[in-house]
Structures are given as C-alpha cells and as structure tokens.
C-alpha cells in the first residue's frame, strides 16, 4: 500500500501553496510539520481530492486518486482543520450520518460508532447535541468520524488543536493502536505530538518539503546549533533581539538560555543535544508563532 505524490504543485494566482512536491508514503505515521501558511492544509486537501492540483499527480497503489474516485474515498478518513458539524445533531446521530455517507451498513455503523465514541471518551454524552460540547469534545468527535470506515489512509489536519494534555495523550495512543498497516498523515504545529507518535516527519516550508526522515535523523540536521548558557537577567533583552531563543529559565539573578544559533553565541555557551522543538525554531523562527 502506498500513496505516491509526484511533482505536485498548487498555485493560487501567483502564490505557490504547494511547490513541486514528491514523496512516497507507505504504512506508518507521518507527521507534517510546518508553520502557518507552509502549505500543509492545501497538501492535505489535494491528498483528499478536495482540490485539484495545478500540476502533478497523486496515486494510490499505482492508480491516480481521481480515477479511483469513490473506491479511493472508501479507504480514506479525513479530519479537516476547520471541522464543521451540524449543531442540532447528537454525537451519535452525527456519526450515523457520517457512516451513511461513507456507505457503511446500518448495523455496522451503529456498532462502530459506539466503539469509537467509547474510544474517544464520548460514550456517556452520545445523546447530547454537539452544540453543547466543548472544543476538545468536538475535536474528539471529529477524530472519531475520520476513523469510522476503518480507513487505510487517514489524514488529520491539526487533530490535537483544542485538546488538553490528557486528551492529547489519549489521542496519541489511539493513533498508535490504529496505525498498523495504515498510512496516517497528521499535520500539526504542536511539535511534541509529532515527536511522540510519528515514525517519519516531513518538514514543510513555503510549499516544499525541506526535510524528510525519522525524528532522530531530522534532529541531527541541527546538531551543533543548540547552545545553553547562563547569563545575568539584565542581558536577556539584548540577547533576545540578537538570537533565536528556544527556552529561558530564571534562577535568582541569572537566566539559563537555550539559544539556536549556527555560531557560538557567548563564551560560556555549551552545546546541547537538540530536539524537535529546536529544529522547528531553527527553520521557522522567522515565521508565525507556534505551540509546543
């Protein structure tokens, strides 16, 4: 089973949202990492055939997804970034509706909906209207609908947005248990989510993949660029202006800084082991804020 992206480009007017991307996705969890506006959502929409590419193709098991049509959609699960719901539907009715348009039989749909509601912790509120749900509950319902048809290709756009830490842990476990023999692609700018569950990471910037690989391999690309040093509290503002600071911790009159820099920033700075968060800051420090 493979999802092949070949020379994919999507252009809006003169803006290139996706720029000549090529990749082969096989079974496993892929984390798509990038700042806002990097082209993640557009790529996901293209993968779900919600948008037409300007050029290039996407094929599933060797066949163009557009030719595959409803057979491709049969194996597809998708959670969009702006997950919409019918406010007057109850959680159960919503899942039954989604099951109906996914073509599931009524008996299977009922059983599967109950199973998933249980897995995402919404079984007790299955008969409550969605409009009464909190943001996190709605998001969990969205994740459940994407998994209804036991998809072979699961695409999740910002699935952990709005989830509290406990819910995020539950989500990670759910994805890990679900991902066997499946292609799971999840986009996020919550770096820790990707770090824990993704087997492979695709780093996207300005419509292109700038790095692809296992988390450990990718992290090595910023080896020697992460520094830690202790400075007087008064020096912090000037250093903040000058350097890309990943973390700071105040200890009395001094502050411990974690600086991402290609050169040694201060005399007393020592190299630190990089993590995915440092990598993100290294590549996206000039772009919009992110959540870690």
């Amino acid at each position: 089973m493979e999802l092949r992206i070949e020379n994919l480009t999507k252009q809006y007017g003169s803006f290139l949202a996706v720029n000549d991307l090529s990749a082969v996705l096989t079974c496993g969890v892929y984390g798509l990492l990038g700042a806002n506006g990097a082209g993640k959502t557009t790529l996901m929409r293209l993968l779900c055939d919600i948008q037409l590419p300007t050029t290039g193709t996407i094929s599933y098991d060797g066949q163009d997804i557009r030719e595959y049509g409803d057979r491709y959609r049969n194996v597809l699960g998708y959670l969009p970034q702006d997950f919409g719901y019918y406010p007057d539907f109850t959680a159960m009715k919503f899942l039954l509706y989604m099951s109906a348009i996914k073509g599931l039989s009524k008996g299977y749909a009922r059983q599967r909906s109950l199973e998933l509601l249980d897995e995402v912790g919404l079984l007790q509120v299955r008969d409550k209207k969605i409009k009464t749900f909190s943001g996190g509950m709605k998001q969990r319902l969205g994740i459940a609908q994407a998994m209804l048809n036991d998809p072979k290709v699961l695409i999740l756009d910002e699935p952990t947005a709005g989830l509290d830490p406990k819910e995020r842990v539950r989500f990670r476990n759910l994805i890990s248990s679900f991902s066997r023999n499946k292609i799971v692609l999840l986009s996020t700018h919550i770096v820790s989510d990707v770090e824990y569950i993704a087997g492979d990471i695709l780093v996207m910037k300005k419509g292109k993949f700038i790095h692809e690989g296992k988390p450990d391999e990718i992290i090595h690309t910023v080896d020697g660029m992460v520094w830690e040093c202790r400075v007087a509290n008064g020096e912090v503002p000037s250093l903040e202006m000058k350097y890309n600071i990943g973390n700071m911790r105040t200890e009395g009159e001094t502050t411990i800084l974690r600086i991402i820099s290609e050169t040694k920033p201060l005399e007393n700075a020592v190299n630190a082991a990089p993590n995915l968060e440092d990598l993100y800051l290294y590549y996206f420090s000039d772009e919009e804020d992110h959540v870690i």
């Binding site: 409803d70 699960g77 348009i101 073509g103 048809n149």
Partner: peptide, 9 residues
C-alpha cells in the same frame, strides 16, 4: 470538506 472526502461525496 469532510463530506467531500466521503464515499458519497
């Protein structure tokens, strides 16, 4: 968007 990606689009 969600409905477009389903079997019955």
């Amino acid at each position: 968007e969600m409905e477009t990606s389903c079997r019955y689009n």
